[in-house]
Design a protein around this nucleic acid. Structure first.
Lengths: 253, 253
DNA sequence: CGCGGCTTTGATCCTTGTCAACTACAGTGG
DNA sequence: CCACTGTAGTTGACAAGGATCAAAGCCGCG
């Protein structure tokens, strides 16, 4: 089986054998870090980019009053901060939510991949654009869905993304209620109430701060989850959601 | 003066004369469209990418129940949907908020720019990453700031972005209250109340559905606005916010 | 003049935040 | 073995922010 990065990038289309070989070199030397470690902090100007091999990493900002907002979750195969290779300074921090295996990729390596490996470049661009699409969906979620649907939607997204890199972890996801709150933009107390509501409906089960999804179809329906924004069509060989996209001929904008 | 696209892209670094010439060709044939026109709808699979030359365009999604979420605002110099050149299908719609001048750029042209013009490629990548940074900030805004700060923050961002492409419109921004609500994730009625609160504080003035910012410094302070996420440092020749970035040595994550 | 879009305002209800107490449990050191 | 500590989950009471509904005002336009 190819490495996680290759699995992730091949969601955008096939890569050549020499591309795969180059990616194998890139992920050759991982290191381990503990839950709650920061990989990098806001304001730093680092020379490495971080790739998640296993575990879960979050991107977060802390406001002056001390409130935290988690603005992205990175799963195995995700590159956390391609930015720094282009933008320079970090405008946010990266923290491990679980024990993680991470690869540090030097900026120069990224620049080499972008300049000299057209298919990898295209795949990296694709993954950046998918990240952006995920951010848009989170924004829709936060602005226009109630907290219970929003939380259900998050779980559906994580399920689908893990599936896409063959990393199901038995469908279990580790998230404390405070983390859930910081992701969804609600308080941890409210996250608790919403979570027990979902539990009462039989849509999720919880054990040891881990969430399991016993009935993913029901959850998807409850959350109005449409996976098209994850742009995984190519991998599945068909257009997953063409039939279900609402066309607003008469949109009342 | 170079064209808007060149002005925008040069925020990431200098371009060569032949790059500028190529960009001049790209923006040579604009067309006009009216406020409320859709440039493109969710689900479509178009062969053009849209560049804003003047006016304001929004990216939005409509939920099954009919609620709208605006997830991005595009100003002069912004490319609305680089995605389609890479991802294919639109997972959202684009609508004109004002009368606009737009350029349609064929996918093939984008591919040519990405493949054969390294400095432009780099600049386009940069602009994509800045768009992503803006999305992250909107997410922070929506999740962790009260509606009044959030609205003030939005105005500060638009002010700064317009400044960066020398398109101040006399510091006036056209947004109806319904649009404001759809951007901030609140109802239009509440948007109205929040707006009048800002007006009472003397932070904004309103005439004809247009917002003016008489005291931008006070507004920035009220909104806790830090422009670092817009990554405009190079243009200004110094690091605008290095001193003001809070370093969380003792972050209580 | 009347119509349609947008703004303004009030009244009421619901969602969510805040504060606080209590439980459960794992780790630590005596 | 037990007390002590810290962390996360749970629950209740209350307050506040924001949604919804409804009515009225404003204004440009045919």
């Amino acid at each position: 089986m190819p490495n996680v990065l290759a699995r992730k990038l091949q969601n955008s289309g096939p890569l050549d054998p020499d591309d795969l070989e180059r990616l194998d070199q890139v992920v050759a030397t991982p290191y381990d870090c503990n839950a709650r470690d920061d990989l990098i902090r806001q304001g730093e100007d680092p020379e490495n980019v971080h790739l998640v091999v296993s575990g879960m990493v979050c991107r977060y900002k802390i406001l002056p009053e001390g409130r935290r907002a988690i603005v992205a979750l990175m799963l195995p195969g995700d590159i956390c901060d391609l930015h720094v290779a282009i933008l320079g300074r970090m405008d946010h921090s990266l923290g491990a939510l679980t024990n993680c295996r991470i690869v540090r990729i030097p900026r120069r390596t990224i620049e080499d991949l972008l300049d000299n490996h057209p298919r990898i470049r295209r795949a990296l661009f694709w993954s950046t654009l998918v990240d952006e699409a995920i951010l848009r969906e989170w924004l829709v979620n936060m602005g226009r869905r109630r907290a219970d649907q929003q939380m259900a939607h998050l779980f559906c997204e994580l399920h689908t993304r893990l599936e896409a890199v063959d990393e199901m972890y038995d469908a279990l996801m580790p998230l404390t209620q405070e983390e859930l709150g910081d992701i969804l933009g609600i308080s941890s107390v409210h996250a608790q109430r919403v979570l027990s509501k979902l539990r009462n409906k039989g849509l999720v089960t919880v054990q040891d701060s881990r969430v399991a999804l016993p009935d993913i179809d029901a959850l998807r329906e409850f959350a109005q989850f449409e996976s098209d924004y994850l742009h995984l069509e190519d991998r599945w060989g068909h257009h997953m959601s063409r039939d279900s996209i609402p066309i607003q001929e008469d949109a009342t904008r």
